[in-house]
């Protein structure tokens, strides 16, 4: 597992700020009516293979998670629905343009940046959850320069991640590889100095560590006597129980709204 973890180490570094190419200018995207119409189409024609939540099934891939590694533009999803994927079980369709865009709108709601879709919950209430002591998110995560530096920056989390992925990272942070690049580390240097923080990047030869003050330390492994790494994420594992259903929903609404380009989106084509 550790070998796999380190082999994939570069991925969260790349994904941290989002390389999301799903920005769309089409009027159906983020439109509740289009999403609702697309939901019906999806449940009737797509859910059998891709699962009712897009989470994947025996014949179709997980649409939500794959968006993290291979995001498709809305136009590309449109073409995939139209033409299918040759050599796979994904068939072409004969939907109208409007129907196809409704379906794209639903898939975008599942897989596109959270900020481009209507999120349930109250972002104002979620703001209090985020900055409050019960959740304590800001101890480790910063938004626009405010908050801790140990965890990933969340200034653009809504602008780069689907809502389902944000939710999963909160309630099941150890499920996947969210902690990679954010492993708690204690370094005893040969000069006797000890450093604590998160290992942002590590090889057999060098280590880049960010400490609790948010300061980066570049460490050569030849200077290290002893390195202790946490096998799991520093992110608390109990948010599913710690927060009420409403608190979690509101927190998600607040995070979904974190978009460094909020308000800059183009209108319909």
């Amino acid at each position: 597992m550790r070998a796999l973890a380190f082999a994939l180490f570069a991925v969260p570094l790349l994904a941290q700020h989002g390389r999301y190419l799903s920005d769309s200018h089409h009027s159906s995207i983020g439109n509740p009516q289009a999403i609702a119409a697309g939901t019906k189409l999806f449940m009737g024609s797509c859910a059998g293979c891709h699962g009712p939540d897009g989470g994947g099934g025996a014949r179709g891939p997980n649409l939500v998670r794959r968006a993290l590694w291979h995001p498709l533009s809305d136009e590309a999803i449109f073409q995939v629905i139209r033409k299918g994927v040759a050599g796979t079980d994904m068939p072409p369709t004969k939907l109208t343009d409007d129907q196809t865009w409704n379906l794209v709108a639903f898939i975008h709601a599942l897989t596109g940046p959270a900020s481009t879709n209507p999120a349930p919950g109250d972002p104002a209430a979620g703001k209090n959850v985020y900055w409050g002591t019960k959740a304590g998110c800001s101890n480790c995560h910063a938004i626009r320069g405010q908050g801790g530096s140990m965890g990933p920056d969340l200034s653009n989390v809504g602008g780069s991640r689907p809502l389902a992925v944000i939710r999963e990272a909160i309630v099941e942070p150890a499920k996947d590889l969210y902690y990679l690049g954010n492993e708690a580390a204690t370094v005893l240097l040969k000069n006797g100095k000890t450093l604590n923080g998160v290992a942002k990047n590590r090889s057999n030869y060098s280590l880049q560590l960010v400490d609790a003050k948010g300061i980066l330390h570049l460490i050569s492994m030849t200077d290290v006597k002893h390195l202790t790494l946490s096998a799991s994420t520093p992110m608390p594992l109990d948010y599913g129980a710690r927060l009420s259903k409403d608190e979690l929903r509101d927190l998600l609404a607040y995070l979904a709204a974190q978009d460094t380009r909020a308000g800059e989106r183009k209108g319909s084509k």
Binding site: Q16, A142, R144, D153, G214, L216
Partner: peptide
């Protein structure tokens, strides 16, 4: 942020 690459403002 020069240490972490965190977004501060645009």
């Amino acid at each position: 942020d020069r240490h972490t690459g965190a977004f501060l403002f645009s």
